[in-house]
Design a protein around this nucleic acid. Structure first.
Lengths: 81, 81
DNA sequence: TTATTTTATACGCTTAATCGTATATATTGA
DNA sequence: TCAATATATACGATTAAGCGTATAAAATAA
């Protein structure tokens, strides 16, 4: 139950999905996270590389957490060969 | 196998732990991530809120990924009561 | 201790995030 | 279609990230 984020665009898409799933407007999310509606718009469209502070605030407002995970090594699977 | 990051300090600590585990100096990590050694120092000490771009670059250089996860609801566990 | 290596700080500079505010442009509902 | 709502864009101002380049300070090794 985790979604990997490799760039601003993927982050924006994840935010938008989560926001819509909770039936929030950008302005609602903005208020919860103490930022401007315009910023939410920018983030969702991936037109800005938000500060870690901001990323965490917005995710928190969506009841989500940021986490780091080891990059899976794509272990060799003999069954597949 | 994931570590939650709630602020700059926690991010910095995670970076430092991962770097040391791989026996890298700040300057080594800096080169891999294409940033300055001074920036790695700042990040590890939590004295700056890096841009998402930077966070992802540094984690990638450490073979780690950023991910977002739903905040666990601390489900009621009857066994505990 | 002394030399070497590593990390932290400093300074001026450039670029970018974020703000407040406002408005243009969708999108949706009646 | 028209009005209401939601999202995207704009603009100037402020704050902060990140740079290059040193160097100070701390940690490690000899």
């Amino acid at each position: 139950m985790s979604l990997t984020i490799r760039n601003n665009k993927e982050f924006g898409e994840a935010v938008r999905r989560a926001r819509l799933k909770q039936n929030l407007r950008q302005v609602d999310l903005a208020r919860k996270a103490s930022v401007r509606q315009a910023l939410i718009s920018d983030l969702e469209n991936g037109t800005t590389s938000a500060k870690l502070d901001t990323v965490i605030k917005v995710l928190a407002a969506l009841d989500m957490d940021l986490s780091i995970i080891p990059r899976c090594k794509a272990a060799f699977d003999p069954v597949k060969y």
